[in-house]
Simulated assay, not measured.
Amino acid sequence: MTNDNINEFYGQLGFEQIEVEDRLTALFIEVSPDGEYALVTDDNGVMPETLKQTVVFACYTSEGAFLWSTSFKNSYLLRDAWSENQPIEEKFLAVKNKRKE
């Protein structure tokens, strides 16, 4: 799978690829009006290479301080939690609640 397919998959969910440090990339989305954001990476903290590998959804404050994270066995399970027809706040809570399962 190419990065284009991963970008397309996550682009449909509202994420965009960004550089996080030293030319390493991740998938980014702003999740609240006060600037909290989330990054989706693989287990090593970089852009996933396939949709079937484990991904980590990590939330940060607007200043970049880590808040919490949760893992999904694959991108498809994250997509299922990130319900398309919900406002961003509800999508965010659905993913956050997966940590408790």
Rank of each mutant, 00 (worst) to 15 (best):
N74H: 15
V46H: 07
L51F: 06
I6P: 05
G45N: 04
L78C: 08
F15V: 09
F15E: 05
A38H: 01
K91E: 01
E89P: 00
S62R: 15
S75N: 03
V20M: 08
E21W: 13
G45R: 02
S71K: 07
N3L: 12
A58D: 03
L67G: 04
C59P: 00
A58Y: 02
K100R: 09
E101L: 11
F57Y: 15
G11Y: 05
F72N: 03
I88R: 08
N97R: 13
L77T: 05
S83A: 14
F66W: 12
L51T: 09
T25F: 15
N85L: 05
K73D: 14
Y76F: 15
E89F: 03
A26W: 00
E8Q: 11
V95M: 03
A81R: 08
E101G: 08
F66R: 05
G35D: 08
T54D: 06
L27P: 10
V55K: 00
K73M: 12
S83P: 00
S62L: 09
I88P: 03
I29T: 12
M47R: 10
T2L: 13
N85Y: 07
Y60H: 10
Y37I: 09
Q86V: 12
P33G: 08
V95S: 00
S75W: 01
V31A: 02
A94V: 01
T61D: 03
Y10V: 05
A94I: 04
D34F: 06
A65Y: 13
K100I: 08
L77E: 11
F72H: 06
F66D: 10
G64P: 10
V31S: 01
I29Y: 01
E63F: 07
K98P: 00
K91A: 01
A81L: 01
R79S: 13
A58L: 02
K52T: 13
A65F: 14
E101A: 05
E36W: 01
